[in-house]
Design a protein around this nucleic acid. Sequence first.
DNA 1: ACCATGGTTCGATAATAGTTGAACTGTTTG
DNA 2: CAAACAGTTCAACTATTATCGAACCATGGT
Lengths: 109, 109
Amino acid sequence: MVANEKLPHPEREDIELTAVLFALSDEARLALVQQLKEGPMDMANCSALDPNAPKSTRSHQVKVLREAGVIISELHGRNRRLTLRRDDIDARFPGLLESVLQEESALQE
Amino acid sequence: MVANEKLPHPEREDIELTAVLFALSDEARLALVQQLKEGPMDMANCSALDPNAPKSTRSHQVKVLREAGVIISELHGRNRRLTLRRDDIDARFPGLLESVLQEESALQE
DNA sequence: ACCATGGTTCGATAATAGTTGAACTGTTTG
DNA sequence: CAAACAGTTCAACTATTATCGAACCATGGT
């Protein structure tokens, strides 16, 4: 039972490849996904989301990933806990996440 | 020896993941890449490039894929022969193309 | 109940991307 | 060499995305 799911997430079968690719085609969003491969994180702790940026900007980046079906964003205390939808993406597009997550350059430069 | 290479193509090591993902995040461009997995094709014969669209539009779509390093566009007679850079993409991002090319939906709907 | 925290939403503006016609380039064919 | 063909480039326009401040909303702590 997932707590308080107010923000819409696409069902697995509604996840579209082009939307996923687009969501991942941004350095910042890709870096965030890289960070989430280790496990769920609270949004406030994600260093990949520039802490200097306004929160509306951070919220927007997360929204794009969420609406594409790449991550789940659920209420957890007063934070948002972000979880990579690894199973769903793997089921829809086998091998895609693995190949993207291998790449380290997004975090380095 | 490749014939008459006037248009710039990035070197293998300069191909960026985000640029590739972005190039593939468009239905039309993805469909073109799907079509090219069978082998090189002349631009004029690619049904994935809407034949009703103006040629400047088709040229633009090809340009995005070329500049991202996804395809090679070389002069071949009075056509452009398009070739998927499978080896280069595989070398840079192993598994990525395979996972994207498995997906059929782009050609179907 | 109040306040601080962490985030969302809205609306405006800036930046980036796509579309297209017209003019131009290179190549084949007559 | 001229016309036709295939495509590129340019410039103007449209459309989509991103950024950001301000107002708002829910939760946790006191």
